[in-house]
Design a protein around this nucleic acid. Sequence first.
DNA 1: AAACCCTCCAACCGCGTCGTA
DNA 2: TTACGACGCGGTTGGAGGGTT
Length: 370
Amino acid sequence: MGRSPCCDENGLKKGPWTTEEDKKLVDFIQAHGHGSWRALPKLAGLNRCGKSCRLRWTNYLKPDIKRGKFSPDEEQTILNLHSFLGNKWSAIASHLPGRTDNEIKNFWNTHLKKKLIQMGFDPMTHQPRTDLFATLPQLMALVQLKDLLLIDHPLDHQTTRLQAEALQLAKLQYVQYLLQSSSSTSSSSSNHQNGVVSSTASADIELINLLNSLPNQQLLHHHHQFNNSEFSNMITSSTSMAATQPLHHHNHILLPPLCDPQEEEEQVPFLTQTTTTTTTATNGNDCNNNNDINNNNTNHNNNNEMMNSWPVEVLPSPPPSSLPQTSISNPTAGGGEGTSSSSSSYAGGVTSYNWTELFLDEPILSEISL
DNA sequence: AAACCCTCCAACCGCGTCGTA
DNA sequence: TTACGACGCGGTTGGAGGGTT
């Protein structure tokens, strides 16, 4: 387990390489090969540690290194390989002739990761992000806090009613998130490093509490009221579906639509609504036809087809269920890294609700959250 | 013009693994 | 089997350069 001594222990030079140093290194290796990296600097007349020489050679000076921008094909390959290799940069680099692991790692960190995030995908799992739902409790707390503040400064009846609706809407979305947690927990063995799953029991309890807290008319308003058996069936079906369906389907919410978009527009004026005409006709088809993301063999192809469509918006494919569903679509372009701005939509009309506008665009909420 | 901010990437650091005595 | 040296990998840093205010 010996560790290489640090360069500055011996007063060796660190930092950027000069052209003379480069020349010395290249000349020596071309004449003698690198042999022992530890011995090389002395033999080559360099005041550097062997590690630094190796790095300089492998990342910069080696003759077969390809420099310059990554081609779309290379970008595609990196994405595909990363989706099942993870941060194994050297393994990825071995599939890209002339590219170094360091270069690929930098390219990933500065470009591809951000690109995936902006598209609403988790760069580690390559699945639609779920952190919006993780923040829902806080969002709901904010709405409730706002209600409290308004006790001293009551607004008109219409406004408070809208706030209440927003809160109920948030609760419904959170219920969906918890449902999903329940299902993905039971299939967590196939869900690598997703980090979404909490305790099934606590999620279920929270779920039931939330459902109880929703007024009946809220559910009626949304065209359906769940009884106990339906509710159990829903969990069961979403669980079994999660166990048999592709990973990215875990992030679909298997509930009826929250409400009729037209109706909602009338009743909740500040709830913005964008209709996504599926620019992704081909994407959608591709996704629908590639439900085997769990399977490494087809995972590759799936990603290929999905990513080939850049920069076109990618919508997650709907689950093979007769139930309408909500899903996470990618935030609008230009959304910054780490933004929680997202939208939920449901198939068959593909209507998106902008949560940021729903909760955070109101001045009072901005004040609270700041 | 200057200050500030952001992005990019070469290089460093620390740890794990491998080979060998 | 163990200890040690060397190498390779992945995460992180820091400075250069470009853009913005």
